[in-house]
Computed example of a mutant assay.
Amino acid sequence: MEGQVTIIAATAIAVGLILAAAGLGSALGWGLITSKTIEGITRQPEMRAQLMTNTFIFAGLMESFPFIVLALAMWFVFANPFLAGITG
């Protein structure tokens, strides 16, 4: 029983770190996407439409990243593969 509690506690900490890293990575990605778009528009205003189209495409990709990581983290929470190795 003690081993199972240890694995569950370690999994909870790991899931918290995974979700924090996903949030930080997504925030940094959003910041880079928008800053480079604004920078490109200020350099070449005539390219605004094309830059905005690319921004929305990349923003959609960036938005999907935390959800994929969330799904992986929830797999560890609800179907923890490390608990299968404990006999007792």
Rank of each mutant, 00 (worst) to 15 (best):
M1K: 12
G3R: 15
G3L: 14
Q4W: 00
Q4F: 00
Q4G: 00
Q4A: 02
Q4E: 08
V5E: 14
V5K: 15
T6V: 11
T6A: 13
I7S: 00
I7K: 05
I7A: 02
I8Q: 12
A9F: 10
A10N: 11
A10D: 09
A10I: 07
T11I: 00
T11S: 08
A12P: 00
A12M: 10
I13S: 01
I13V: 07
A14S: 12
A14W: 10
V15Y: 09
G16I: 06
G16E: 09
G16W: 09
G16T: 07
I18L: 15
L19H: 01
A20C: 08
A20I: 14
A20G: 08
A20H: 06
A21S: 13
A21G: 11
A21T: 08
A21K: 09
G23T: 10
L24C: 00
G25D: 07
S26V: 01
S26G: 08
A27D: 06
A27L: 11
L28P: 00
L28F: 14
L28W: 14
G31T: 08
L32N: 11
I33L: 15
T34R: 12
T34A: 09
T34F: 13
S35K: 15
K36G: 00
K36I: 03
T37E: 03
T37F: 02
I38M: 09
I38K: 12
E39L: 02
G40V: 03
G40D: 07
I41Y: 03
I41F: 03
I41W: 05
T42W: 03
T42H: 06
T42N: 13
R43G: 02
R43N: 09
R43W: 02
R43A: 11
R43M: 06
E46L: 05
M47S: 09
R48K: 14
A49V: 13
Q50G: 01
L51C: 04
L51A: 04
L51S: 03
M52L: 15
M52W: 06
M52E: 15
T53K: 14
T55N: 14
F56G: 00
F58N: 06
F58G: 05
G60L: 13
G60W: 11
L61F: 15
S64L: 14
F65K: 05
P66L: 08
P66V: 03
F67A: 06
I68G: 00
I68N: 02
V69E: 02
V69M: 14
L70P: 02
A71W: 10
A71C: 04
A73C: 05
M74W: 06
M74L: 15
W75S: 01
V77F: 06
F78C: 01
A79Q: 12
A79N: 11
N80V: 00
P81F: 08
P81Y: 11
G85L: 13
G85E: 12
G85F: 12
I86K: 10
